[in-house]
Write a protein that binds this DNA or RNA. Structure first.
Lengths: 166, 166
DNA sequence: ACTTTCTTTCAATACTATTTGAAACTTCCG
DNA sequence: CGGAAGTTTCAAATAGTATTGAAAGAAAGT
């Protein structure tokens, strides 16, 4: 397999992978392209290499910046902006984890918190209380875990935990 | 807030939460309904309580069984089938983790494995090799971690890790 | 073997999300 | 200031997913 083919495969796979995680395909593909590019790329470069429209490229680039996965870079003497991905995979993991925690886990915990003490003595009410309570406990623990593991450094955490479990 | 309202909120939220994770809304809602029901429910019950069609209820129930999140239950004297969710939230977490690992993480690792040794001496080729190698390392570690944590017991793992990080 | 009751399938339809492309906007420079 | 070069926005078009409902299939009882 040559480099060109391999790059295409990587971009495609990263796109599919992203889809399964609620990240849209283009956004994931732009990310993939920037991850494997040696030099920062311009909007034009991205449009061309992925065959997507200007609007699409722009929107997804901004979303990636929002996730702290991509930075704007200014090249001296150049008017237009260039974009560069964070290349440290451990940092990438930290940013993604934090962002998803904030967007998905935290709202769920807040809801479960509200729903925890619904009154009622029927079996249905008891069943409901137990479920929300247990889920609240689980999600809170997970939240703490992710919090610490990203506050310090995922790399450290994953390595330590792997050792612990061996 | 009364029980009825709380149940509706829970079902709705679980549905929205599921969507963000690539699980379709109905599937997540059926799951939510079964999670908070004291008794096993029939297809009719689910159709009625969620206002969805028979086909939809049926398909999603089968998908949930496939994920080991729901079991078929036979009530003696009844012809039709009933469905019951796994209520132990730690087991639920284990099943979901395992399933997603199998469906998403493992294929990615296999691909990265293939892409790790693409030849070429250009800066682009080196950049590509470094990225696939680093990602392979990260995903493999994560895989091991998830593997152990679900083989034993997520509960044990999360509690241990939380302590470790305190 | 027929009827009843329930389950499963699947083509048509409805719904949601993504992408485009062109217009509006901004910035920089002579 | 005027215009060239680039960026951003957003309504409309397209593509992608989920849902319905009716028909076919299974299983159980008579």
């Amino acid at each position: 397999m040559d480099l060109k083919e391999a790059r295409e495969k990587f971009i495609e796979a990263w796109g599919a992978f992203g889809s399964a995680w609620g990240i849209n395909r283009s956004m994931a593909q732009v990310h993939a392209l920037l991850l494997i590019s040696h030099e920062p790329l311009s909007t034009e470069d991205v449009m061309e290499q992925l065959n997507i429209s200007r609007g699409n490229a722009n929107m997804n680039m901004r979303a990636l910046i929002d996730w702290s996965l991509v930075r704007r870079v200014l090249k001296s003497g150049e008017r237009r902006e260039f974009f560069e991905a964070e290349k440290d995979v451990w940092k990438v993991a930290t940013h993604i984890t934090r962002e998803r925690k904030k967007r998905e886990l935290e709202p769920l915990i807040r809801l479960l918190d509200e729903l925890e003490d619904i009154p009622g003595a029927t079996a249905e009410a008891k069943s409901f209380r137990k479920m929300t309570h247990d889920l609240h406990d689980l999600t809170t623990r997970l939240d703490t875990l992710l919090d610490h593991s990203t506050r310090r450094d995922v790399q450290w955490f994953v390595k330590a935990a792997t050792t612990l479990l061996k």
